[in-house]
Protein backbone atom coordinates (compact mmCIF):
# COMPACT_ATOMS: atom_id res chain seq x y z
CA UNK A 1 0.00 0.00 0.00
CA UNK A 2 1.27 3.48 -0.84
CA UNK A 3 2.36 4.99 2.46
CA UNK A 4 0.95 8.44 1.91
CA UNK A 5 -2.39 6.92 1.02
CA UNK A 6 -2.13 4.73 4.11
CA UNK A 7 -1.58 7.78 6.32
CA UNK A 8 -4.88 9.32 5.21
CA UNK A 9 -6.80 6.05 5.14
CA UNK A 10 -5.69 4.92 8.60
CA UNK A 11 -6.21 8.41 9.99
CA UNK A 12 -9.87 8.34 8.97
CA UNK A 13 -10.36 4.76 10.14
CA UNK A 14 -8.95 5.80 13.53
CA UNK A 15 -11.11 8.91 13.51
CA UNK A 16 -14.21 6.84 12.74
CA UNK A 17 -13.32 4.39 15.51
CA UNK A 18 -12.85 7.12 18.10
CA UNK A 19 -15.95 8.97 16.93
CA UNK A 20 -18.00 5.79 17.42
CA UNK A 21 -16.57 5.23 20.91
CA UNK A 22 -17.20 8.85 21.74
CA UNK A 23 -20.81 8.78 20.49
CA UNK A 24 -21.43 5.79 22.72
CA UNK A 25 -21.08 8.19 25.67
CA UNK A 26 -24.11 10.25 26.74
CA UNK A 27 -22.30 13.55 27.02
CA UNK A 28 -20.82 13.43 23.52
CA UNK A 29 -23.84 11.86 21.86
CA UNK A 30 -25.81 14.87 23.08
CA UNK A 31 -23.10 17.20 21.75
CA UNK A 32 -23.02 15.80 18.21
CA UNK A 33 -26.39 14.17 17.54
CA UNK A 34 -28.57 15.42 20.44
CA UNK A 35 -30.26 13.10 22.91
CA UNK A 36 -28.95 9.99 24.59
CA UNK A 37 -28.11 6.81 22.71
CA UNK A 38 -30.32 3.79 23.47
CA UNK A 39 -28.73 0.58 24.73
CA UNK A 40 -28.59 -1.20 21.34
CA UNK A 41 -27.10 1.83 19.65
CA UNK A 42 -24.56 2.25 22.44
CA UNK A 43 -23.47 -1.38 22.08
CA UNK A 44 -23.31 -1.13 18.31
CA UNK A 45 -21.18 2.02 18.52
CA UNK A 46 -18.79 0.40 21.02
CA UNK A 47 -18.47 -2.69 18.87
CA UNK A 48 -17.87 -0.62 15.73
CA UNK A 49 -15.31 1.55 17.51
CA UNK A 50 -13.41 -1.39 18.93
CA UNK A 51 -13.32 -3.29 15.65
CA UNK A 52 -12.27 -0.24 13.64
CA UNK A 53 -9.31 0.27 15.96
CA UNK A 54 -8.34 -3.32 15.17
CA UNK A 55 -8.85 -2.72 11.45
CA UNK A 56 -6.58 0.34 11.68
CA UNK A 57 -3.81 -1.77 13.21
CA UNK A 58 -4.20 -4.37 10.47
CA UNK A 59 -4.05 -1.68 7.77
CA UNK A 60 -0.90 -0.28 9.38
CA UNK A 61 0.72 -3.70 9.28
CA UNK A 62 -0.12 -3.94 5.56
CA UNK A 63 1.42 -0.57 4.81
CA UNK A 64 4.46 -0.62 7.11
CA UNK A 65 4.88 -4.22 8.28
CA UNK A 66 4.68 -5.42 11.86
CA UNK A 67 7.79 -3.58 13.05
CA UNK A 68 6.90 -0.01 12.04
CA UNK A 69 3.14 -0.56 11.66
CA UNK A 70 2.27 -0.40 15.39
CA UNK A 71 4.31 2.81 15.74
CA UNK A 72 2.30 4.38 12.91
CA UNK A 73 -0.90 3.04 14.49
CA UNK A 74 -0.23 4.71 17.85
CA UNK A 75 0.78 7.93 16.13
CA UNK A 76 -2.29 8.08 13.90
CA UNK A 77 -4.60 7.18 16.79
CA UNK A 78 -3.18 10.13 18.74
CA UNK A 79 -3.49 12.44 15.75
CA UNK A 80 -7.11 11.41 15.10
CA UNK A 81 -7.94 11.76 18.80
CA UNK A 82 -6.57 15.31 18.84
CA UNK A 83 -8.64 16.23 15.81
CA UNK A 84 -11.77 14.85 17.48
CA UNK A 85 -11.20 16.20 21.00
CA UNK A 86 -10.41 19.72 19.85
CA UNK A 87 -13.20 19.81 17.25
CA UNK A 88 -15.90 18.63 19.69
CA UNK A 89 -16.25 21.79 21.79
CA UNK A 90 -15.80 24.25 18.91
CA UNK A 91 -17.67 22.53 16.06
CA UNK A 92 -19.52 19.46 17.38
CA UNK A 93 -21.66 18.97 14.26
CA UNK A 94 -18.64 19.24 12.00
CA UNK A 95 -16.82 16.70 14.18
CA UNK A 96 -19.50 14.26 13.03
CA UNK A 97 -19.54 15.36 9.40
CA UNK A 98 -15.75 15.16 9.09
CA UNK A 99 -15.93 11.38 8.82
CA UNK A 100 -18.03 11.81 5.66
CA UNK A 101 -16.37 14.90 4.18
CA UNK A 102 -12.76 14.03 5.07
CA UNK A 103 -12.34 10.72 3.25
CA UNK A 104 -14.34 11.96 0.25
CA UNK A 105 -11.96 14.88 -0.18
CA UNK A 106 -8.70 13.19 0.84
CA UNK A 107 -8.79 9.68 -0.60
CA UNK A 108 -9.98 9.89 -4.26
CA UNK A 109 -7.01 12.01 -5.47
CA UNK A 110 -4.79 8.94 -4.92
CA UNK A 111 -6.73 7.05 -7.60
CA UNK A 112 -6.52 9.78 -10.22
Amino acid sequence: MDKHFAVYLVFFVCYAALLALCLAMDRHHAQVLHGKPGRPRRLALRLAGGSLIGVALWLCSLAWGWAIGPVAWFGLLSAAAFALVFLLPYAPRFAGWLIVVGPVLALPPFFL
Binding site: K3, H4, V7, W64, I68, V71, A72, G75, L76, S78, A79, F82
Partner: peptide, 22 residues
Protein backbone atom coordinates in the same frame (compact mmCIF):
# COMPACT_ATOMS: atom_id res chain seq x y z
CA UNK B 1 15.60 3.62 16.44
CA UNK B 2 12.22 4.19 18.09
CA UNK B 3 13.58 7.32 19.72
CA UNK B 4 15.40 8.76 16.70
CA UNK B 5 12.61 7.99 14.17
CA UNK B 6 15.08 7.32 11.37
CA UNK B 7 12.50 4.98 9.80
CA UNK B 8 9.35 5.61 7.83
CA UNK B 9 10.27 8.90 6.18
CA UNK B 10 8.24 12.07 6.46
CA UNK B 11 4.85 10.61 7.49
CA UNK B 12 6.42 9.08 10.60
CA UNK B 13 8.45 12.22 11.34
CA UNK B 14 5.30 14.33 11.26
CA UNK B 15 3.55 11.96 13.67
CA UNK B 16 6.51 12.25 16.06
CA UNK B 17 6.51 16.01 15.61
CA UNK B 18 2.81 16.21 16.43
CA UNK B 19 3.09 13.93 19.46
CA UNK B 20 6.21 15.70 20.69
CA UNK B 21 4.58 19.11 20.44
CA UNK B 22 1.53 17.71 22.26
Amino acid sequence: ALHFVRFGGYPMKWLYFLSGMA
